[in-house]
Design a binder for these strands. Structure first.
Length: 885
DNA sequence: CTCCTCACG
DNA sequence: ACGTACGTGAGGAGT
């Protein structure tokens, strides 16, 4: 006979946290909630002898309940960090127990348990639901009993339908009505004010349900009648919120709940880490560590400080160390605050604080080690580390492995690549959260030196343990070369570009800003005049009210929160009212003013007159870079007004020139190569205008018959192809009927049959492998390609088509950057590479190198990777970025 | 902190 | 039938 035990993880861990006195292990990790939870688990295992077991967790911040009622669970106290740091520990503990755990974005633990208990009930399986939440009583049935915590953690009271009848005089489903009437302060569910348990029960005993009560208000007396009538809607909504959703998509999850008992060695290691000595004894778990002992063992290293060692001892320790970690707080590496670093040999970790690093006497051996190209170093986020150190006058050299880059390559879509997340994914001993060590926001402070040293040492040690695991995973995924020969060298090149920065002429921006200011205020007063009132044009909400309510313009597109007022909508509205054009113009200028003039001015360094962007190498799922603080990859160019911003980007040395080179049609060339489509390859080999050529073939005309409109449409089709085309997307873009768009696409595929075959194949391949790759074996997983949900699946299919193209283009320009950097160094050039904008590189060049760079840059870019079609790069130059066109 | 809007490739 | 083009970052409003 099967026996299921379903545990509401969030509810029980909260219960345990508040029921148990504070408890920490020797490394400062809070363990009281995990301890309480463990005792609960042991009791359940002993008493219930379950065949299946599951701990369900809430996932994400919002659920479907927030859609109807945004204030759901509002007003809750934030989870204390002493508790939140125990969540990952609990999850690790459950793995050690061999107990299944589950969470699903958008649903709460209740809903998961509700669904599984329904399945169990339908199958006639005896089931116990464990929670601290009375709501769960609604799940009780002939086969499902509810164990509610009473006091402490292990003291529970069991309810079956008869027990609920006895206690409340209600059926399980009436529990929902009970809450609908009385509400629940902890979830911020209102119910009917003034109705508590007593009144609610009285009402339910008389009328049966919320609906029954509302239908019979005439029979209620006095003040209560008013209250009920006044809060009818609240009662109905509250009932809805209290209803556990029992149809969560849990396809065949039941099989995964099987519980086969725990492995004594694994559990023993976990308990040792948590220092649950009494439990080890109680369960008589084995002493020695198992196979995973290394991964799970408590700190086996000794922590020393730089000032506690002689220079010789320090040098000797560093000579046998490779793994290190640099702590700097702040997202912008150019301004991040260096806190300290830790270097580990395995047995010993030396910690160097900011003050110690700044003390030349103490830090000389450390500085020497960091700058020694011959001393191999493995770390985490070395790109940031290199920048932080370089602003402190230390040049980081000799880096051989970056755990962050490796993790990114292994799964670029993983939402968190923090060291803590890597540690957790690899089953290593959990370390304290940064928040618990430093606090956050205004409360940030560097803790006492021993605490800080312990934390940094734990991180360096985590890096040391991660390196061999990541190295092997890279090898398995055929990405070692990509990592060591492309991404890691690129990180060094990027750091150099960022540190160098690009000069921005503030007075150019200020003049432009003054001009914009004049025009913006003119537009503002014109808009107010047409509207007949003043309002905040920047507020989509207020603007929507003015346009669609006051002026009565037709609204056809909505956003989640109201009317859409985006450019697409406004362009359609232009004929209806003069104000619309003015708003569009206002928006255009306001964007330039706030984001580009004011935004950029704020980023200029007083001392150098330069801006220093930071390229993020581990963000984009396709392998592209992204740029931050400021973003220099979205400086206006399409419209002349905005393009003028580029006049502010100038060389940093007198007499020098800005030189820009961009790849021509790189994505379509990549597509021609990987699809092998003969027609497309020929077009590029003969260097014809690809959009004109596409128009000729799709419309079946000669070159001189292709008019501007045909070329425009062909260009849109080509873009669509790269994005993973759909008739809907193309019709939207070209503003044509969907049928016509479908016809275009069909005609395109008739002509470019190799492209059609590629699109079909890559989707099939993604479905078979679960991932797609670029030419350099960069990988992106697409689990949703098998989703039954049409939208999710379609999105994954388009991604499967697009990622190899966009990603290979990214690979190519990255290769070009590494090669170009080497050329500049090998040839001893003074020219500097400054920016990358996906298919463009920007340099500043002294006069005497201009002629050379005009040929060298395109040569290197075109030669970055050998394809079946030529790569082409166009060069331009001028006194500023605007002129380099 | 999320949403909307808009800048780029 | 479903309802989208692929990839980013930043500013302002309103919660």
């Amino acid at each position: 006979m099967d026996k299921w035990v379903l545990i509401d993880g969030n509810s029980i861990i909260y219960r345990a946290f508040f029921a148990m006195p504070p408890l920490t292990n020797s490394s400062g990790l809070h363990t009281n909630a995990v301890y309480g939870f463990t005792t609960m688990l042991l009791k359940l295992l002993e008493e219930e002898k379950p065949t299946h077991m599951l701990v369900a967790f809430d996932a994400g911040k919002t659920t479907f309940r927030h859609e109807g009622y945004a204030e759901y669970k509002g007003g809750r106290e934030k989870t204390p960090s002493e508790l939140s740091e125990q969540f990952p520990v609990l999850k690790e503990l459950l793995r050690s127990f061999g107990i299944a755990q589950y969470e699903l974005p958008g649903y709460e633990a209740d809903d998961i348990i509700g669904t599984l208990s329904r399945l169990a009930d339908e199958g006639g399986v005896e089931t116990v639901v464990v929670s601290g939440d009375k709501d769960m009583l609604q799940l009780a049935s002939d086969h499902v009993t509810i164990a509610l915590t009473r006091k402490g953690v292990t003291d529970v009271e069991r309810y079956d339908p008869a027990g609920i009848q006895e206690r409340y005089g209600l059926t399980p489903l009436q529990i929902i009505d009970l809450k609908g009437l009385m509400g629940d302060t902890s979830d911020n569910i209102p119910g009917i004010p003034g109705v508590g348990e007593k009144t609610a029960l009285k009402l339910l005993h008389e009328f049966g349900s919320v609906e029954g009560v509302l239908a019979n208000t005439s029979e209620i007396k006095g003040k209560m009648k008013e209250k009920v009538e006044e809060h009818q809607e609240s009662a109905i909504m509250s009932k809805k919120l209290a209803t556990i959703y029992r149809e969560v998509p849990l396809e065949n999850k039941a099989d995964e709940l099987v519980y086969n008992g725990y492995d004594e060695v694994t559990l023993g290691d976990m308990f040792r880490k948590l220092e649950f000595k009494s439990l080890i004894e109680r369960l008589q778990l084995p002493e020695a560590g198992g196979a995973d002992a290394n991964a799970l063992a408590v700190a086996t290293y000794e922590v020393v400080t730089a000032s506690g060692l002689t220079a010789d001892a320090l040098t000797e320790l560093l000579a046998t160390s490779e793994s290190f970690y640099i702590e700097a707080i702040g997202d912008n590496p150019h301004q991040a605050r260096f806190i300290g670093l830790a270097v580990t040999s395995g047995e010993r970790v030396v910690v160097v604080t900011y003050d110690e690093l700044m003390d030349a006497k103490i830090s000389a051996p450390v500085r020497k080690w960091l700058q020694d190209a011959q001393a191999p170093k493995k770390g985490y986020d070395l790109h940031k580390a290199e920048l932080v150190l370089s602003w402190l006058g230390v040049e980081l050299r000799g880096t051989t492995f970056d755990a962050l880059l490796a993790a990114y390559l292994l799964d670029p879509t993983e939402s968190s690549q923090t060291l803590a997340a890597l540690i957790q994914r690899h089953g290593l001993a959990t370390i304290q959260t940064d928040e618990s060590v430093y606090g956050k926001g205004a409360k940030f402070q560097v803790p006492a030196s021993e605490v800080l040293a312990g934390h940094l040492a734990a991180k360096a040690d985590a890096v040391r343990r991660l390196v061999p695991m990541l190295t092997e995973e890279l090898e398995t995924g055929h990405m070692s070369k990509l990592c060591y020969e492309l991404e890691q060298p690129l990180a060094v090149v990027l750091a150099g570009m960022e540190k160098q920065g690009i000069k921005v002429n503030a007075s150019v921006l200020e003049d432009l800003g003054a001009e914009l200011e004049k025009n913006i205020s003119q537009y503002m007063s014109d808009i107010y005049m047409h509207a007949g009132m003043e309002f905040n044009i920047n507020s989509p909400k207020q603007l929507g009210e003015v346009l669609f309510e006051k002026l009565g313009l037709p609204a056809w597109k909505k956003t989640k929160t109201g009317y859409s007022t985006d450019a697409e909508v406004l362009e359609k509205l232009e004929p209806y009212h003069e104000i619309v054009k003015l708003i569009l113009l206002y928006r255009q200028l306001a964007k330039l003013q706030s984001t580009y003039v004011e935004g950029l001015l704020k980023e200029i360094r007083r001392d150098t007159g330069k801006v220093h962007t930071f390229y993020r190498q581990t963000i984009a799922a396709t392998g592209r870079l992204s740029s931050q603080f400021p973003n220099l990859q979205n400086i206006p160019i399409r419209l002349e007004e905005g393009r003028r911003i580029r006049k502010a980007f100038v060389p940093s040395e007198p007499g020098w020139t800005i030189l820009a080179a961009d790849y021509s049609q790189i994505e379509l060339r990549v597509l021609a190569h990987i699809s092998g489509d003969e027609k497309m390859k020929t077009a590029f080999i003969e260097d014809t205008d690809i959009h004109t050529k596409t128009a000729m073939d799709v419309f079946g005309v000669t070159a001189d018959q292709v008019d501007a409109n045909m070329r425009r449409q062909a260009k849109a089709v080509n873009f669509g192809i790269v994005y993973g085309i759909s008739d809907f997307g193309l019709s939207n873009n070209l503003n044509i009927a969907r049928k016509d768009a479908a016809k275009f696409i069909e005609q395109y595929f008739e002509v470019f049959q190799g492209v059609r075959a590629y699109m079909d194949n890559i989707v099939a391949q993604a479905r078979a492998d679960g991932f797609v790759t670029t030419l350099l074996e960069r990988r992106r997983y697409l689990p949703e390609i098998k989703a039954s949900n049409f939208n999710l699946r379609s999105f994954a299919e388009r991604t499967a088509m697009n990622t190899p193209i966009q990603g290979t283009a990214a690979d190519i320009i990255k290769l070009a950057m590494v090669n170009m950097d080497k050329e500049i160094r090998d040839r001893g050039l003074r020219s500097r590479m400054l920016l990358q904008v996906h298919d463009e590189l920007v340099f500043e060049v002294p006069a005497e190198e201009l002629e050379l760079m005009k040929t060298l840059v395109p040569e290197v870019m075109e030669g970055a990777l050998k394809l079946d079609v030529p790569l082409k790069a166009d060069v331009s130059f001028g006194d500023n970025w605007y002129e380099a066109k």
